[in-house]
Amino acid sequence: MSRTRTPVVANWFTGEGEGFRLLGTRCSACAAVFFPREDVHCRNPGCGGGDLAEAPLSRRGLVWSYTDGRYRPPEPYVSDPELPWRPYTLIAVELEAERMVVLGQAAPGVHVDDLEVGMEVEVVPGVLHEDGETTWTTWHWRPVGASA
C-alpha cells in the first residue's frame, strides 16, 4: 500500500525536483512579498492595500543563521516519545530578491558542522513525518552542490 503525499501546510510550496518552490504572496500596491503567505490583506503597515497574488520564491539564498534543535519540541511537531530524540538542524536563509529570511530544517544529513553564514543553499522537497497512510511533506534547505 502506498502512502498519500500530503503537504504539512497547504499552499506553502509546490512542485518536485528542480521545479520545487516555496509559495509566498506579493501585494500589487507596494510589491511586498510575504512568507508564510498572506491571503487576506497586505501586512506592510505603510501600504494602503492591494490585491495579493501568489508568488513563487527564489530557490536559492544565503545562510543567514543556523542552529541545532537538541530538545523535543511540543505538539503539533510529530515525534514518538518512546524513541530517543535526535537533534535536527535549522537554517535561516536570506532570499535576496524577496528581501526576507525564511526558516526551515536542513536536508537529512546536513549538520551544523556543514554550514557557515553566507553559504549558498537551495530549497528542496522534504518529508517531515510518515505514518501508516500519509507521507507529510515539507521543505528543507540544502547546501548548493550537495547530493540529495
Rank of each mutant, 00 (worst) to 15 (best):
C42D: 03
R43W: 04
N44K: 09
P45Q: 07
P45G: 07
G46N: 13
G46D: 12
C47L: 03
C47S: 04
C47G: 02
C47K: 05
G48P: 00
G48I: 01
G49F: 02
G49V: 03
G50Q: 05
D51H: 11
L52T: 02
E54N: 04
E54L: 06
E54W: 11
E54Q: 13
A55T: 15
A55E: 15
A55R: 15
P56V: 04
L57N: 02
L57W: 01
S58G: 06
R59M: 01
R60P: 00
R60L: 00
L62P: 00
V63L: 01
V63I: 06
V63Y: 01
W64F: 11
W64A: 07
W64L: 01
S65G: 09
S65H: 08
Y66H: 14
T67L: 07
D68A: 10
R70E: 06
R70G: 08
P73F: 05
P73H: 09
P73I: 08
P74L: 11
P74T: 11
P76Y: 08
Y77N: 10
V78F: 05
S79T: 12
S79Q: 12
S79K: 04
S79M: 06
D80A: 09
E82H: 13
E82W: 01
L83Q: 15
L83T: 07
L83V: 06
L83N: 08
P84V: 10
T89Q: 10
L90D: 04
I91R: 12
I91K: 11
I91W: 09
A92D: 15
A92H: 15
V93H: 08
E94R: 15
E94Y: 12
L95H: 11
A97Y: 06
E98K: 14
R99K: 15
G104F: 07
G104T: 10
A106N: 10
A107V: 07
P108E: 13
P108W: 07
G109E: 10
G109D: 08
V110T: 12
V112G: 04
V112L: 07
V112P: 08
V112R: 14
D113H: 13
D113T: 15
D113Q: 14
D114T: 05
L115G: 08
E116H: 15
V117T: 12
V117L: 05
V117P: 00
G118P: 02
G118T: 08
M119T: 01
E120D: 06
E120G: 02
E122H: 05
V123Q: 01
V124W: 00
G126A: 05
H129L: 00
D131A: 01
G132R: 09
